[in-house]
C-alpha cells in the first residue's frame, strides 16, 4: 500500500468504475442478443390441443358425490394442491358447493331444497374479461392466447389484489409453506411456495400433451370442454340446444364455465 500515492489510487479507482459500467452494459447487450437468437428455438408440442378460447360446460344433472370427489381428488393430487383442513387457509382449485352458494343471486324462498342444495363443481371461470388479470400489478396472472387465465408463480408478489378482484372466490393464497400438507407428491408437477396465489389452470400442462383437463376425464361425461369460438365444437352444440347459466354473469367478466341445469 505504501508505494501507491493518492493520484495512482484514484486512477485505479476510476478505471475500476469505468470497467464496472462497461462490463455491465456488455452484459446487457449480450443478454438481449441471445434472447432473440433463442426465440425461434421455442416451440409448441406438435400434438398439443389448441383453441382460440377454451371453455367448459358442467352438466349438474350428471354430477353425483362420487364424480365430484373423483374430480377434486384427481385435480388436487396431480397439481400437488395441499390438503389444509383449516378453512382460514384452505387451498382449492376445484370443489363442491351447494347451488344456493354457487349462485346466490338465483336463490329463492320457494326453491325446492333439492335444488338449493344441489351439488355444483366450482373452479376458476377463466373469464374472457378477467378482473384478476386487470388488477395484478406484475402480470403474474395473465390471459393466454387460448383464453386460459394463467398464474406465473415465479412472479407473484403475494399482494392478493387478484383475490379481492375475483368475484368467484376462485383464488387461494399460500398462507404458509404448503409442503407439509402434501402427502404424495406428483413428481411431474411443481409445488408452490408460501406467499403466492394459486388457482385452477385449465390443465394447460395436460392440453400441451394432447390430454383433456383432468376433471373432464374423471367426470364420466358430466364435464365437457372445447373451443367456444369453434361453432362445430361439442360444447357449442350443447350450448345451442340447452339452457346454460354462468356464475354472476351480470358482472361482465364473461366466464368460460357454463352450467347445465
Amino acid at each position: 500500500m505504501s508505494n501507491i500515492n493518492r493520484r495512482e489510487f484514484l486512477k485505479i479507482l476510476g478505471i475500476g468504475t469505468f470497467m464496472g459500467i462497461g462490463g455491465w452494459s456488455m452484459f446487457e447487450v449480450v443478454g438481449k442478443g441471445e434472447i432473440e437468437a433463442f426465440a425461434e428455438k421455442y416451440k409448441k408440442v406438435p400434438g398439443a390441443l389448441q383453441a382460440k378460447r377454451w371453455a367448459m360446460v358442467i352438466d349438474l344433472k350428471k354430477l353425483d358425490q362420487q364424480i365430484i370427489n373423483d374430480c377434486t381428488e384427481v385435480c388436487h393430487r396431480i397439481h400437488n394442491v395441499p390438503k389444509i383442513l383449516n378453512p382460514k387457509e384452505e387451498i382449492k382449485w376445484i370443489w363442491d358447493e351447494k347451488f344456493k352458494n354457487a349462485f346466490p343471486e338465483l336463490k329463492d324462498d320457494y326453491m325446492s331444497s333439492e335444488i338449493k342444495n344441489m351439488h355444483v363443481l366450482v373452479l376458476c371461470n377463466h373469464c374472457e374479461n378477467p378482473p384478476c388479470v386487470r388488477v395484478c400489478p406484475t402480470k403474474a396472472t395473465f390471459k393466454r392466447k387460448d383464453g386460459i387465465v394463467m398464474m406465473d408463480m415465479h412472479r407473484c408478489i403475494g399482494c392478493r389484489f387478484c383475490m379481492a378482484g375475483c368475484p368467484y372466490g376462485a383464488r387461494s393464497f399460500n398462507w404458509r409453506d404448503p409442503k407439509d400438507y402434501i402427502k404424495n407428491e406428483n413428481p411431474e408437477f411443481p409445488l408452490r411456495m408460501r406467499g403466492v396465489v394459486e388457482k385452477c389452470t385449465f390443465c394447460y400442462e395436460r392440453l400441451d400433451r394432447g390430454l383433456p383437463p383432468a376433471c373432464v376425464e374423471a367426470s364420466k361425461g358430466a364435464i365437457m370442454y372445447g373451443d367456444i369460438t369453434d361453432p362445430n365444437s361439442e360444447i357449442r352444440k350443447i350450448l345451442s340446444s340447452n339452457f346454460a347459466i354462468r356464475r354472476k354473469a351480470k358482472l361482465g367478466t364473461k366466464p368460460s364455465v357454463y352450467y347445465l341445469l
Binding site: 421455442y42 416451440k43 409448441k44 408440442v45 392466447k145 394463467m150 406465473d152
Partner: peptide
C-alpha cells in the same frame, strides 16, 4: 409458463 411453448 408465459408463452405456452414447451419444446426447446
Amino acid at each position: 409458463v408465459r408463452d405456452g411453448k414447451t419444446l426447446y
